[in-house]
Write a protein that binds this DNA or RNA. Sequence first.
DNA 1: TTAATGACCTATC
DNA 2: CGATAGGCCATTA
Length: 109
Amino acid sequence: MQSAFERIYAVVRQIPCGKVATYGMVAQLAGNPRWARVVGYALHANPAPGVIPCHRVVNREGRLAPAFAFGGEDRQRELLAAEGVQFGADGCVLLSEYLWNGLKEGETP
DNA sequence: TTAATGACCTATC
DNA sequence: CGATAGGCCATTA
């Protein structure tokens, strides 16, 4: 079934380790820049936890949704921290350093 | 089919 | 600076 979900999952799955992407970015890479809400909905459905790194998807602030599927925002912090992602004092990811450029590993320009 | 919902984003008060 | 409103789209009931 090729719904928007599949497309979004495909993009989220391509996020390299130690990097994070925003909803809007995933939406854009998925094909439509207005799927930000759909991305959130898709991740909320979270049909394949472990396969889809939902914790690597954050909002434009570098912060995750108030209701994380795996157990809470604290869980997300550990998951990202385990991948080498650091956080600010506010608990938001340093997008300036860890925001996914949209390219896969080894495709640096 | 219609209506309602949502882990967003942007603009405005 | 903090809170509120609206707009966009797909999925579910």
